[in-house]
């Protein structure tokens, strides 16, 4: 590998060595890189960082529950064509101008190698990844309307993120390079905060990180606070001018970290001053029960 084609991590994004090597392996083998991990571990940010570091253009394809594989390839604008034929505008015989390429199509036709981010692939229908197998494997697709095959001029670096909401099909997984981003440990978390807010006092960062991990380790939380929430909290603490020494003891502004009533109750019982409202605490969660 030449130096300028391998990803090294970037200033704004702290990546572990394993992650960096996974990116480079995926790029070298031309396989999609599937990134899984808890929300807030920087899955989406990774693609931004790769694009920035390798100085490539980034194309983002955000997946929603209604997204179909076809949307990423191309859309054939029949209606426009019919209208044009009615009013004699444009060259109706040229079907090409009514074919609009989707994100994947854009990525394939780009002259330079680019980074394609397929964000939250598990949001889509359960069959969605299977529909893209051929396209991602062979990096080409066929447009029946024009009889053309669009193939990648430069095979893009494909980064796919998943929140594990749905399981992905085996056939799809076999073709990917997989990396699971574990939740950062305390040391790494301090580095991450440093990258985002370089001018903070060490005391504040240390206290905030400690408090944060105390909260995260509470058993029974429905929604564990993530990195982005910690960053918000740190900012809130700085703006509020809170003394670092009281952070661990009093945990001011817990609402930035905890977003659910239940979690707040658990926190209050453990750390808070107010007595827990027994009634609310008794209201247990159904899915929590079944998943336990």
């Amino acid at each position: 590998m030449e130096n300028n084609t391998s990803y090294l991590g970037s200033e704004k994004y702290i990546a572990s060595d394993e992650l960096i090597s996974s990116v480079n392996v995926a790029a070298a083998l031309n396989r999609p890189l599937l990134i899984k991990g808890e929300p807030g571990t920087g899955k989406t940010m990774l693609a931004l960082s790769v694009a920035e570091n390798l100085k490539m253009q980034l194309i983002i394809w955000n997946i929603k529950s209604t997204t179909k594989a076809q949307d990423g390839l191309y859309v054939y604008d029949t209606v426009q064509r019919l209208y044009d034929s009615q009013f004699g505008e444009g060259n109706v015989r040229d079907i090409k101008q009514y074919i609009k390429l989707g994100k994947l199509g854009d990525a394939f036709t780009s002259d330079k190698r680019i980074v394609l981010l397929i964000d939250e692939i598990d949001k889509a229908d359960i069959e969605f990844p299977n529909d893209l197998l051929w396209e991602l494997d062979q990096m080409n697709f066929y447009i029946p309307e024009t009889g053309e095959t669009v193939s990648a001029k430069q095979r893009p670096i494909v980064v796919i993120t998943s929140n594990a909401e749905k399981e992905l099909p085996d056939a799809f997984l076999r073709r990917c390079v997989f990396h699971y981003i574990a939740f950062p440990d305390q040391e790494m978390m301090k580095q991450i905060i440093n990258v985002h807010y370089p001018n903070l006092e060490n005391d504040l960062v240390r206290a905030a990180v400690n408090a944060f991990y105390n909260i995260r380790n509470l058993p029974g939380l429905q929604k564990k606070p993530s990195t982005s929430e910690l960053l918000d909290w740190v900012q809130a603490l700085t703006i509020g001018g809170i003394d670092p020494h009281v952070i661990e003891r009093e945990m001011p502004m817990p609402g930035v970290l905890l977003k659910k009533d239940n979690d707040m109750e658990i926190w209050k019982r453990k750390f808070g001053s107010g007595a827990a409202d027994a009634k609310a605490a008794a209201k247990k969660n159904i899915s929590g029960y079944w998943r336990s």
Partner: peptide, 12 residues
Amino acid sequence: YFLARSLLIKSE
């Protein structure tokens, strides 16, 4: 170790 893991293993 990491190379083989990223290519062979597809679930944490």
